[in-house]
Amino acid sequence: MRTTVPVIIAFLSGFAMILLFFISPEHSKIGTVELEPEVLSWVTIVGGFTLLLGVVSILRVNYVAVQRKKEGWIYNLATLVSIFAMAIPAILPESWSPLLGTGTGSIYDWLFNNLDAPMMSTMFAMLAFYIASAAFRAFRARNAEATLLLITAALVMLWRVPMGEMLLSGIHESIPEKINTYIMNGANLAVQRGILIGAALGAAAMSLRIMLGIERTYMGK
């Protein structure tokens, strides 16, 4: 029962989506109900519940860690405080106070623009330092393939910035255009197409496995 019902739901949901793809919305009415918008509304509602599930899960994990005073519990506490500090003013209606809700000038908006966004940008910016250090240690012309990768990477890096483009044009004015034509729209395009087609076929196969109940890892099995 615990396996059969989810498999039936997965099959019917997947089958309905495939069927609706081939039928125009006008022809997919059951009585007065338009099937496609109805099914998609349900998908959106279920998506909303998955977000809720994520919030409940993170609250539970962090609460248990704080309660048991696990190592580094202070960080778990910081997570809990942050969640409530962002969520409570955002959930409360804007009609009570302009500081509530998610509009411009609200507490949520202030926290997002002045804490969340700068912190996330800073974390991402740190990558520049690690990439620079890793590139200079890892990019070694050990063999023919590595040398080819090194030269291509150097050319593309130069091509993507004005100063590098000036240098390349200084050697020969057609070099930037040739990089665009032969590397990006040539070798790169061919490889990317292969990856895209391969990934699409893989996704289709995986969807079929889920619909037919062969793939059951989403049920924790």
């Binding site: 620079a132 200079f136 012309a141 910035v161 590098g164």
Partner: peptide, 24 residues
């Protein structure tokens, strides 16, 4: 931002080149 991006890209390329010359 193009100034900063240009300089960092050039620095990485030069450091990789110099590293490879020493390695060689």
């Amino acid at each position: 931002g193009m100034g900063a991006q240009s300089l960092v890209h050039l620095f990485i390329i030069v450091s990789v080149m110099v590293g490879n010359i020493i390695f060689f």
